[in-house]
Structures are given as C-alpha cells and as structure tokens.
Design a protein around this nucleic acid. Sequence first.
DNA 1: GCTAGAAGTCAACAGCCGTTTACAAAAAAC
DNA 2: GTTTTTTGTAAACGGCTGTTGACTTCTAGC
Lengths: 200, 200
Amino acid sequence: MAQRKSPSRPRSAAAPRPRDAEQTRAEILHAARVLFATRGYANAGMREIAAAAGITPALVVRYFGSKRDLFVAAIESDIALGPFLGPDRATVGRHIARHFFSKPVREVDTLSILLHAAGQPEVCDLATELLATRVIQPLARWLGPPRAEARASLVLAIISGTWLFRQALPMRAFAGGPDTSLASCLAAQIQHVVDGLPEP
Amino acid sequence: MAQRKSPSRPRSAAAPRPRDAEQTRAEILHAARVLFATRGYANAGMREIAAAAGITPALVVRYFGSKRDLFVAAIESDIALGPFLGPDRATVGRHIARHFFSKPVREVDTLSILLHAAGQPEVCDLATELLATRVIQPLARWLGPPRAEARASLVLAIISGTWLFRQALPMRAFAGGPDTSLASCLAAQIQHVVDGLPEP
DNA sequence: GCTAGAAGTCAACAGCCGTTTACAAAAAAC
DNA sequence: GTTTTTTGTAAACGGCTGTTGACTTCTAGC
C-alpha cells in the first residue's frame, strides 16, 4: 500500500516525465492557449497554466520569460480565415455562420484568445493590432469596394458580438447549434454585408 | 507655511468632507459605475473606487457589503432603450447607430458595465440575466414575428460587437463619430434586421 | 565512470487584492 | 453638558499573483 521509495530509482508509479524540452515547450503553449481562450488573460494564472502542462510555474517563465511574452507566443499562430475567403461569395455568410455555431461553445482558437484580451491593459493593444492586420485588412481586400474597410469591420463586429454571448458572457439564446433560428439569421446578416450594403 | 492645526476646528485647508451618508453613498455608486464601465469588474479595485469617491475602501464595504454587492447596485439602474422602441420603425437603425457613435468612446452606461463583466466568473451570470430580461425580451416584443427572439439577439450582438471594438478592445476603425462610413453601415445593418430578414 | 550542462523542483519574495478589526471624530439625543 | 449613535479613518489580515534564486536530478559527451 505504502509507496515504495527505492533509493536508486523511485520510478515506481507515475513515470517521472521524460525530459524533452521541445515537447514541454509545446505543452506549455497548448495549455496557455486553452486557458487564455477559455478564461481570459487575467483569469488564467501562471500556476494554473503550469499545472495544466504538468510542470512548475517557474519553468513556464524559464521557457517564455513572462506571462505577457507567453501571451505573445500564444497568439502568434495564424488566424485561419483562409477557408472562407474563397471565390464563392454567394454562400460565405452561411459557411461562416455554420462554422461558428458548429464548433463547441468553448473552442480554443486564436480569435477567442484575442477577444478575451478585451479590457486587459497589458495585452489589449497586442490584440487590436493583430486583429487589424490579420483579420480586417485581408477581409477588406477580399470584400472589395464600396466601403471595404467599414464592411470588413462590421463583419468582424457581428462575429465578435456573437462570440461574446456564446463564449464570454454566455447567454442561453446563443448556445445552440448551426440549425437554430439565430444561426440562420447570422448567416443572412453576414451575407448581407458581403453582398454590399445599400447606399444610405 | 506649516499647516496650522487649531485645537478646536482644524478645517484650515481641504475642508474635512461634510458628513452626509446619502451623498457619500451616491458618490461611491457613481465612482463604481464609472470604473466598472471603463476598466471592467476585475480591473476596477476597491481602493481605486474609494479614492475616486474621496473616501476609504473600508467605507465602501460598510455601505455596500462587498465588491460583488456593489456591482449589483451599480447595474440596478434601468437600461434606457425606451427611446428607440417608438413607433418609427423605418429609421430606428439610423437612430441607434447615431446614438452609439455620437457619444464619447468612454461613455458610462449600464450596457458598458454589463458587457465589461464578460469572462469575470463572479458577475457574468448577473450580467447575462439582466441582458436577457431587460434588453432581449423587450426588444423581441417590439420587433415582433417572425423569429423575434433571434432577431433581437442579433441586434444586441451587432451593437455589442461594435461596443467591443470601440470601448474594450479599442480599434482605430471604430473610434470615429456618427458620420463615418462605419456608422452608416451599422445603421443599415441594424435596420435590415429590424425590417425582418429574408427567409432562408 | 565521470563530469558539464540542461531540465525541472522548491520555497520564498514583493506587491496587490478584498475584507476586517480597532479606533477617532462629528453629529444627534437626552 | 453628557452620552450615544453615526460617519469616517488607519492599519492590518489572509490570500492570491507573477517572478526570482538556489537547489536537485536527469542526460549527454568524453
């Protein structure tokens, strides 16, 4: 019953983590992305991230320097809006809406990490810059005139508002799947912006 | 030069706050609303709120019990969407958009307080409940069929997404006034939902 | 086998947080 | 004029945070 502690090698139960720096670094990064995306920057503690990666908080700072630098590393992967920016403009609204409402509520993606940085003074400037250059600009280029940037901003606002009530401030009305009335309304709404709004 | 400290009444400089419980309570509440709306629940500290009200953190606790109770008191005032829910459905989109982009970026209103509670585990359930009962439900009733609740939710999502990039994650594209291209796009967008979306 | 260095743990630091307790002063009641 | 109640301050508490330095333990090179 009592755990035997042999003097030479105490690897009786719970094998003592093979020492692989590269994999450990990857596990820290994965844990950080999960927690930053689900709990937000402020509410994801270093101890919690370290525990999720199966190591010690001190090791997290040895690998990444500081919590802010860890956040920078966590958002450095690309935001995948490539699949939506294809040639089929007529159905892109439906595709985005389906993608959005198909995935589980607590999905881990870079967009969630960025939006969850709202109001955190240490990192929200990083998030805004990344959203502007990696989301708004390509989207505006794909949408084209008239008023490309305004329409791209509005698409992002619609998606982010939906994200807000689905992930961060979870409301029952937004919790459903891709076949709900809300999802189809979102699809029509995005499509309307993509098609070009009527002139005022 | 040295401050005289007369034994009977030391009110030489900086008159020692007249003791008015009602006004002090109101000042605490005002400071709390300002800071909850601008910095969010987590980033607005009790010491900061107390300093803004010109008193001591201990007094805040004596008046409101705890930080969470102070938050509850801060969101208890009504959310003013009455002005928009009049009979003129044809221009409501423009009115909401104008109202939204006319006010300064760091406006103090209950909607900002509620949205800034996103991701704060202690208070986000309060915010979601209030948004559901005080915003979505009346809005859905005003919009009417078809798909009233979905359309109301979408209006809130659009407005909140815009708020997100104007207040909490401030992006340059959303910082302008009511005459920008983005504002007119937002107006058209909201109007489109109010008018009723095309069936899928 | 021995040793240098990498990989990881441990305990502590300083700083902030919300909250509490003990106490001072002003106003009100008697 | 004295006592009691209200209004406010001062200082500390325990707990949490990101971060640090000293210390082990494993592994690779000779």
